[in-house]
Simulated scan of single mutants.
Amino acid sequence: MKKMISLLVLLVVIGVGFIYYIKNDLVNSVTYSDKVETTNNSVEQVNLKTENISSKTLLLKNLDTNDILLKKNSKQKVAIASLTKLMTVYVLLESVKDLNETVVIEQSTMDKLMKEGASLSGYLVGDTLTVRDLAYGIVLPSGGDASITAANLVAGSEKKFVSLMNKKAEEIGMKDTHFQNTTGLDARNHYSTTEDLLKLMDAALKNKNFYQVLVTTKYQTEEKAYAPEGYYIESTLLKDTADLSLSNGKILGGKTGYTEKAGQCLISIAEIHGTHYLLISTGANGNPTTEQKNVADARQIYQSIEHS
């Protein structure tokens, strides 16, 4: 009898595990539509040749009017790579109000990330960094070390900090989002949608410090123990070119991301004819050694906006 009960328990556990695997593997096996939904109004029109867009999901919003101008697979659950770090830095800046509070990068943090092949900020183990340094280190060079150091500062561990990230996601209505880490490295049950990422941005952009970090492309720290002149870091947006100007305006800043599962991703803000726009995209073809097709898509989309 005991053997029968044990067998039944084992079968139930296997069944639950299989359902969990199937549910969370859907992010890997989705079918994307090529259709881009457009909404034109009296303020602007978007004349876009959609066949030239590489990104598999996208959403374009006029930040001044709150109008959604473009959508593509915006409800699809996808891997989001380092776009995750925008939630990381948002929770950091909401949790620690004093940007001059300091913390030290630990060797264990660096060792873990180097084994995983994660992107790093350029800061060194033993550096005493301010929360301000961490925020820019998370967003501009996409520093996983800065992300985990922020997590340790706020919550004592990455695991506990991720719980705060998921709690914040629930609070702002991100119903199709779940985080497993602070860095965006591919992990089962780590996903979001462009519509949910818009909810994150709508909330986070109200934090003036978050906005300032996002629209900054270059940052210089103060003097550090291992860097007498401080550290100079710049945005991964500048990988292909330092010129973010457009024919009708300028990309002000943003956050790129890439993993093999997520493709090239980007959240950016641009000013066009005096109006501010937010663009969220994931799944562009390419990798860290190729052209930034996420940025190329953004340029094409922003430059397709015409004001009447």
Rank of each mutant, 00 (worst) to 15 (best):
I5Q: 09
L7D: 07
L10W: 09
L10G: 15
V12T: 13
V12C: 14
F18L: 14
V30Q: 12
N40L: 04
N40W: 03
S42H: 10
S42K: 13
V43L: 12
N47A: 06
K49D: 12
I53L: 07
L58D: 01
L58H: 00
K61M: 14
K61S: 05
N62L: 03
L70C: 05
S74I: 04
Q76V: 15
K77C: 03
K77F: 08
A81G: 08
S82K: 01
K85T: 05
M87F: 14
M87K: 01
V89E: 11
V89Q: 07
V89P: 03
Y90R: 06
L92T: 01
L92K: 02
E94M: 10
K97Y: 10
E101I: 13
V103K: 07
V103F: 05
V104W: 00
Q107S: 14
K115P: 04
G117P: 02
S121L: 06
G122N: 05
Y123M: 13
L124G: 09
G126Y: 04
T128P: 09
L129S: 05
D133W: 03
L134C: 09
P141R: 00
A151Y: 00
L153S: 10
S157P: 06
K159N: 13
K159S: 14
S163E: 15
N166W: 03
K167I: 08
K168P: 08
E170A: 15
I172R: 00
D176A: 12
G184Y: 00
S192P: 06
S192M: 02
D196H: 15
M201I: 11
M201A: 08
A203H: 15
N207E: 04
K208N: 14
N209P: 07
N209R: 12
Q212D: 15
K218C: 05
K218S: 11
K218M: 09
Y226W: 07
E229A: 10
E234H: 12
L237R: 03
L237M: 13
L238I: 12
D240N: 15
S245V: 07
S245Q: 08
L246A: 08
S247L: 08
N248W: 03
I251P: 01
G253E: 01
G253W: 01
T259L: 00
K261R: 12
A262L: 01
G263F: 01
Q264F: 05
S268A: 12
E271A: 10
H273E: 12
H273C: 04
T275L: 07
Y277Q: 02
S281R: 03
S281N: 10
P288C: 06
K293T: 14
D297N: 11
Y302A: 00
E306C: 06
H307S: 08
S308L: 09
